[in-house]
Design a protein around this nucleic acid. Structure first.
Lengths: 336, 336
DNA sequence: AAAGCCATTGAAAAGGATTACATGAAGCTT
DNA sequence: AAGCTTCATGTAATCCTTTTCAATGGCTTT
């Protein structure tokens, strides 16, 4: 049987309460404290966190539910959240929903059983709807996918603005037939679609949007289909990192040149973004800030459960690279 | 106060023991079982996992310690491990050590406090050494970084073989001055270095190895330095994904063409590997198999604690892409 | 019909910590 | 010097389950 607080107490010649107080920095005389610490070292005692959680009614655990940890944005997010959590002595339970509402339900139940202190969640659209009705016994902070300001705090990119920025940028370099490719599972895609629509409209450009599963393969297939038609687009905006890669692949298959034939741009900056093709133009999300803000919102919420819900929008940063470089030599340059 | 098993028992008119038995599929008459299930549904009762763990002395939790979840190999590994764990009703605690021995120590202590069932660990070299002495109260399976067959099970790529494959491949396309770039924290790098040495030696090639921090930046700096000398190499092997990206960046900075001037190759296949430059030649690790095998070893170990340690080596797959294409037109083609 | 057996069920202990409350000693006030 | 406060410490209750053990009642067996 493992060493318990009792063994330490016995060895140090004190009560278990005193040992406990040593751990929680309670009032203990220096002399006893030292004896206890010696006993801890000698026995190699480790407090049992399950027992501590049970008694103190504090799980010191937060849940993190995302679609897939392998998606670069979520990878980075999880790292930030874990760092912040450990810094405050908390644990993280990570769940991959694979965009499935069933798995979301299953994991929500798990969160309840773990008695998590709070949940940071990038919900599917279905999950978001359910959240409006169901009452969860812990605070929830939505990330990446927010919806309108509801009962829950959220922190998201200003997707509308960011997508509009991309459209304007493509317009600036002379593109007029810009199509948009969006995921079909998240609310993020909806926001980006709206930004795309309003920007193309305000510029008097035609618009055409496609919704597919948020994967490189689906994106590639869709783009191949779109480009098999006459009257090809001269610009593509993809609403996620993986989809952008699918677009690049499709361009290769079609032997189209970037940016000469088609300019492409998308979301999320990665180490390799500058190395793919001529470099990918992307909106960089402040993922560090997003993660830290989510934790801040969560901790604030724990302090003031009744405060009104907050929705924090952070702006992305446009990083221009070769995939949207102005085409030179082929067309007449404007003279200023 | 949350609903406990007592409330359910009271509502169903049974004892708490019976409710507990319903959850564990113990012997309960169909009639009572139904009454209990109704009460559970009515109250929205969720078992308290801390209490369950405390009493049953089963944490149903495994630890996963890696250098950084953002490193693509570890991202993929964590996903596999989590999937496997959840399928067996277990939880995963993820820790990022950032290659720091201090953090490893800290997290090992955490693992003990959590009373983890087992640990899957990609240790630093320092951690590996300590592991040889210290006794941990739970089984450990080493992944990615194994060392010699010691007291612990491990599952690793056949790094020696894999690196030799890369050297032979570069030799096949006519490269003779191949340098190797290796990380300076992991045992993996050592194994790869050895494979590199023995392959170059057996081919009668010169060899030159560099050890740097396992990041894109460090790799880029080192390569810039190496290539500032006269008598440039015509081939580079990088021992990780991130370092390979650093090499590509360096080539861009130096305006060297790949593969014409320098052929480059490395480890780990990602979605974007084929899209960087002319496509990156890499050794693909069977990360799914590695993760599943680690779980299998762990579960086996729990069943038979005394069985001798096993070291499983899996072989990588060479994926040839443009970064090591034979150069045509510049040199005379051999005639067959 | 008595004895033995099996399947259900409940009462109570146990798991390892935290914490409310009681206690006792020391220091302070007046 | 009596009484009051303060501080360190110990005792015991408590958190919520699982699990052991005993009890019950219905059957079968002889």
């Amino acid at each position: 049987m493992a060493i318990s607080i009792k063994d330490v107490a016995q060895r140090a010649g004190v009560s278990v309460a005193t040992v406990s107080r040593v751990f929680s920095n309670g009032p203990v005389s220096p002399e006893l404290r030292e004896r206890v610490e010696k006993a801890i070292a000698a026995t190699g005692y480790r407090p049992n966190l399950s027992a501590r959680r049970l008694r103190s009614q504090h799980s010191q655990t937060i849940g993190l539910m995302v679609a897939d940890i392998r998606s670069p944005f979520f990878t980075a997010l999880s790292r930030v959240v874990e760092d912040e959590a450990y810094r405050s002595g908390m644990r993280v339970i990570l769940c991959n929903t694979d965009e499935s509402a069933d798995r979301e339900t299953m994991y929500l139940r798990l969160m309840e059983e773990e008695r998590v202190t709070g949940l940071i969640w990038a919900p599917t659209r279905g999950g978001l709807e359910r959240l409006a009705d169901d009452d969860l016994p812990f605070p929830v902070v939505l990330v990446d996918r927010g919806g309108p300001v509801g009962r829950h705090d959220s922190v998201v990119l200003d997707n509308h603005q960011a997508t509009a920025t991309l459209v304007h940028h493509l317009h600036t370099i002379g593109r007029s037939r810009i199509v948009g490719l969006f995921g079909n599972t998240s609310s993020t895609a909806i926001d980006r679609h709206l930004g795309y629509l309003s920007a193309t409209a305000s510029l008097g450009l035609s618009s055409e949007a496609f919704f597919v599963a948020p994967s490189a393969e689906a994106a590639e297939r869709e783009i191949l289909k779109v480009f098999s038609r006459p009257d090809r687009p001269d610009g593509v905006i993809a609403s996620s990192n993986l989809m952008l890669l699918g677009v690049v692949k499709a361009m290769r298959r079609l032997v189209l040149r970037t940016p000469d034939d088609v300019a492409i741009a998308g979301f999320d900056n990665e180490t390799w973004s500058e190395l793919v093709g001529p470099g990918l133009t992307v909106i960089e999300q402040p993922v560090g800030d997003i993660g830290r803000m989510a934790m801040t919102l969560l901790f604030d919420r724990l302090k003031t459960p009744k405060a009104p819900a907050r929705k924090v929008m952070l702006s992305g940063r446009l990083i221009v690279r070769g995939s949207t470089a102005p085409v030179t030599g082929l067309v007449d340059e404007p003279v200023d």
